[in-house]
């Protein structure tokens, strides 16, 4: 079937089997390998994408469900060559080690900050609790999300 949706701000139409997983469509058909797969069962969050601005797991979504949606992957978080406060803060605060959880983690954090622009550390921990990280112990991730929240609040230009 043909599935039409907006991907990172661009309208696309794909001819794919409707029962393929969204994560496979993104990685294999579209080459967007920033979306990772860590478990295939909704237990790790590595495949997180934004669907109409909400963080969802692309391993538990079928291609047909992409239809008509606004999809944002990590590659589309920073539009038109600009930067986004979250990846910047992750770099600055040492929140990246192996980096395999990082795209999903950043998208999960982006959804959190949409809903709660000034979260406490506990709220950040709760907000990213569906994204497993095996390297960092999360503390520097929490630091980074807190700083990105401040940056967004202060309206720092995404330069």
């Amino acid at each position: 079937m043909t599935v039409q949706f907006n991907l990172n701000g661009r309208r696309i139409a794909l001819d794919v089997d409707p029962d393929r997983r969204a994560v496979d469509i993104l990685r294999e058909e579209l080459g967007l390998t920033g979306t990772k797969e860590g478990c295939g069962a909704g237990e790790c969050g590595a495949c997180t994408i934004l669907v109409d601005g909400v963080n969802r797991l692309s391993c538990l979504m079928l291609a047909a469900q992409l239809s008509g949606r606004e999809i944002t992957t990590i590659e589309g978080l920073s539009r038109e060559g600009g930067t986004h406060p979250l990846p910047e803060a992750f770099v600055k605060h040492g929140a990246v080690q192996c980096g395999f959880c990082t795209p999903g983690m950043i998208l999960g954090a982006a959804a959190l900050l949409q809903e709660n622009p000034a979260p406490t550390r506990d709220e950040i921990r709760r907000g990213i609790s569906g994204n497993l990280c095996r390297c960092t112990g999360y503390q520097k991730i929490v630091d980074a999300v807190a700083e990105a929240a401040r940056a967004i609040q202060e309206g720092e230009p995404s330069s």
């Binding site: 909704g42 969050g45 797991l57 538990l60 609790s129 569906g130």
Partner: peptide, 9 residues
């Protein structure tokens, strides 16, 4: 229940 993305789905 689950986690934020699980609760979103």
């Amino acid at each position: 229940l689950g986690s934020p993305p699980i609760r979103n789905m």
